[in-house]
């Protein structure tokens, strides 16, 4: 049951994050990516366009328990990437007032976002370690 709650939790965070970005004009997320000063300018627009969709889709997959382990693995890769990017921004003293993780919804500083992402990453590993998931689409499809 605890893993079910974890699945909903990680899934919900990504659904919210993707949704907020998709509801906001593209230049807002492009500006967030520009702030991290890591992507080539030619990549910023395509990444800003695609990434929120990936968050929404895999967040929904995980919450519904569809391809649970694979979805948790994808989201774990995202979380590990966020942690690296946020740590880099702190080390380089980049002028980021907030992480830009949730669009206009929730404002977190890079340090707060690292703590959240680390917690979600551990949770994702626990989900990945489980072979079967209760109340999941996977369970229904395997019947």
């Amino acid at each position: 049951m605890l893993v079910l709650v974890m699945r909903f939790l990680v899934g919900a965070v990504f659904i919210y994050s993707g949704w907020e970005k998709l509801m906001s004009p593209l230049p807002n997320f492009m500006a967030v990516l520009e702030g991290y000063q890591i992507l080539k300018s030619s990549l910023i627009q395509p990444v800003a366009f695609i990434f929120p969709w990936l968050e929404l889709v895999f967040g929904t997959f995980l919450a519904l328990g569809f391809l649970s382990r694979a979805s948790a693995s994808v989201l774990a890769v995202f979380l590990a990437t966020f942690i690296v990017l946020l740590s880099r921004s702190l080390l380089l003293h980049l002028p980021l007032l907030e992480c830009g993780c949730f669009g206009s919804g929730i404002s977190l500083t890079p340090a707060q976002a690292i703590i959240l992402d680390a917690g979600l990453l551990v949770t994702s590993f626990i989900i990945m370690a489980r072979k079967s998931h209760v109340l999941s689409v996977d369970q229904v499809l395997h019947k």
Binding site: P25, P27, N28, M30, A31, E34, S41
Partner: peptide, 11 residues
């Protein structure tokens, strides 16, 4: 038309 930040304004 929305633009965010000096970089987008410049480009």
């Amino acid at each position: 038309q929305l633009i965010v930040g000096g970089l987008q304004l410049k480009t």
